[in-house]
């Protein structure tokens, strides 16, 4: 079911960056001048100033194309995203290869303006376009025995120069608990700023789970599997002490090598100030309930 979650700022429909920003400014002026509804949400909306297209598409972690932040923008153009199929299998009623076009024809794409917090203590605000993962899972018919969702990124040595190196155990895999996968905030993104999502950001479709560290939001998904037990995840396999299965954004639990208490928003230049990191990346009202009673230090 689409539209289960609304952005703080409702006027930001799918628009190009320039129009987007001018409309925001117009909105702010209108609110101030005429006292329109939605005033209460303005403060938070102001904090959610989206990053520029340039920032979002030039500073990426996508190790299949190299470990440098600018490697994906340089090399990802070699990835062939057409045609694209997503294999949906495991404990589902209708397993099979789903063509990207067929998926898009059945899904409702909406805009979601989300904070994005990397485990490396930097962050962005991204205006994604995408559909709710739950809608796709319902299309395939998840069976009652399925407790987790596992996902896999494309693994193509000919198109991805980084997989020649064993930086990680390829293919990249990630997973969510079923309630997390079904949560209205969890989307499969297919665009940014109303444009097709660029390869370096995970074309043609990637997971976005805004209350978890960025590496949970697996890119260029080729396989979605419903399973009955916690699936392996790439960073956890690489270093279980540093990266847990849940990886919820949490300023109170530091990474063994750095603090997670603060973050720096990308795009602030040489003198950008750090700002406090919010628990669940600011989405606690929506998601904290799913972890009630869990020790988040143990289940980091």
């Amino acid at each position: 079911m689409a539209y289960r979650w609304k952005n703080d700022l409702k006027e930001c429909d799918v628009t190009p960056e320039a129009a987007y920003i001018s409309r925001r400014q117009l909105m702010a002026g209108a609110v101030a001048g005429m006292g329109l509804a939605g005033l209460g949400q303005r403060a938070q909306a102001e904090a959610l100033e989206p990053n520029s297209w340039e920032d979002i598409t030039s500073y990426n972690n996508y190790y299949e194309f190299g470990t440098g932040k600018d490697d994906p923008a340089y090399y990802a153009h070699t990835l062939k995203t057409m045609p694209w199929t997503v294999k949906i299998d495991g404990l589902v009623d209708k397993p099979g290869d789903y063509a990207f076009e067929d998926i898009m024809a059945r899904m409702t794409v909406e805009e979601r303006l989300y904070r994005f917090r990397c485990v490396e203590a930097w962050s962005m605000v991204v205006p994604w376009n995408g559909f709710e993962l739950s809608d796709l899972l319902q299309l395939a018919g998840v069976q009652p025995g399925a407790k987790y969702i596992a996902m896999e990124t494309a693994n193509r040595p000919d198109e991805m120069p980084g997989v020649k190196y064993r930086t990680l155990d390829w293919p990249y895999v990630e997973g969510l608990r079923m309630d997390e996968a079904m949560h209205p905030l969890t989307i499969m993104a297919t665009g940014i700023y109303g444009k097709d999502i660029p390869n370096q950001n995970g074309a043609p479709l990637r997971l976005v789970v805004p209350w978890k560290y960025g590496f949970k939001s697996i890119k260029s998904v080729v396989r979605i599997t419903a399973v009955d037990s916690e699936p392996p995840t790439s960073w956890n396999k690489a270093n279980a002490r540093e990266y847990g299965f849940y990886s919820n954004v949490n300023p109170e639990v530091s990474h063994p090598r750095w603090s997670q208490a603060t973050e720096r928003k990308i795009g602030g230049g040489l003198f950008a100030a750090r700002m406090p990191t919010l628990k669940f990346n600011g989405y606690g009202d929506e998601v904290a309930g799913m972890y009630a009673g869990m020790d988040l230090r143990k289940n980091f």
Partner: peptide, 12 residues
């Protein structure tokens, strides 16, 4: 770094 030539995250 001061003139935007070091990309989106000049500090790092």
């Amino acid at each position: 770094g001061a003139t935007g030539g070091l990309g989106a995250e000049p500090i790092k």
